[in-house]
């Protein structure tokens, strides 16, 4: 029960929190290890990589050696393109995944119809869809969005489905015996009942969209963080690779956090003592 409420209470002063300092320690030792591996070891594979200081200097430089830093317009164009694609894929995943998940959980026939197909397609990684996406779609944008969309869509559908399945049968019955129609049951029982699981799905889908994006943007011709990473590799602009990766991680994290915040806001009924409804 405590678990359900913790995310809302932890928003105190972060510096007073031991967890915060441990997280900082983790991050710091990673950077140190990275620096040491690049600078101080005799291993060639490591020495080729840029060290963290070089990356940060490039990232914050008004005149970056490889053309990308927080002072260049291109940097933001890449972010905007990626954000647009991730959001488009995410939105599509919600629009298609939530209804499919609801009907799979609600109607046995839909479940039987879709589930095995679904289970077969779900483990296929986004990278493996790239050739099909190129063949399937006329333009670059739809193909990129399709590859970005897939994992998010599967996550959305599965979480919605599990959420509907977990609703106690008695809520359906209570609605029906108080005069609720099928439509009422959908709006009053299924959607609010599955909402906690749908929001977990949204967070996972948001994350999934961002990590599939890099695969999708290999197809991209000009812009996007995934594109930037590959392009910088081809052009031997190694610090820019790291800038692209770090930016991807950061933007992905921020968007998942935004989804989580909206979720906590919307499910006020859940923040009360949950799990006592026995």
């Amino acid at each position: 029960m405590a678990d359900a409420t913790t995310p809302t209470i932890t928003r105190r002063n972060p510096f007073a929190n031991e967890g915060f300092w441990l997280a900082m320690l983790g991050l710091g030792s990673f950077l140190l290890l990275w620096y040491a591996a690049v600078k101080w070891t005799p291993i060639q594979a490591f020495n080729r990589l840029p060290d963290p200081l070089t990356v940060v200097r490039e990232w914050l430089s008004p005149t970056p050696s490889y053309g990308i830093s927080i002072f260049t317009a291109d940097y933001y164009v890449h972010i905007l393109y990626s954000t647009y694609r991730a959001l488009a894929a995410f939105t599509l995943a919600i629009l298609l995944g939530v209804p499919l998940g609801i009907f799979m959980g609600w109607k046995r026939s839909v479940h039987q119809y879709a589930y095995s197909l679904f289970s077969l397609l779900r483990p296929v990684p986004p990278l493996a869809w790239v050739p099909i996406a190129i063949l399937l779609f006329p333009g670059v944008e739809p193909a990129v969005i399709f590859v970005t969309f897939l994992v998010a869509f599967f996550a959305m559908t599965m979480n919605t489905y599990v959420g509907v399945k977990a609703i106690p049968e008695d809520y359906f019955r209570a609605s029906a015996c108080l005069g609720g129609t099928n439509t009422d049951i959908l709006w009053d029982v299924i959607i609010p009942g599955a909402m906690p699981s749908i929001f977990t799905g949204l967070q996972i889908a948001m994350g999934a969209a961002w990590f599939s994006l890099a695969a999708g943007e290999m197809i991209a011709a000009q812009y996007g963080l995934g594109f930037l990473i590959w392009e910088s590799y081809n052009l031997i602009q190694y610090p820019t690779i790291i800038i692209g990766m770090a930016t991807l991680g950061l933007v992905g994290y921020l968007s998942s956090a935004a989804v989580r915040m909206v979720g906590n806001r919307l499910m006020a009924w859940r923040e009360q003592r949950l799990g006592t409804g026995g």
Binding site: P168, D170, Y171, R173, A174, S175, A176, C177, L178, G179, D188, V189, P192, G193, M195, M267, W269, R270, L274, G277, G278
Partner: peptide, 19 residues
């Protein structure tokens, strides 16, 4: 079909927690 002329009060309790 279930209907409001025969309303059930459930063993586990079935108030909608979100209302």
């Amino acid at each position: 079909a279930p209907g409001p002329d025969r309303v059930v009060v459930f063993q586990q309790g079935a108030l909608f927690p979100w209302k």
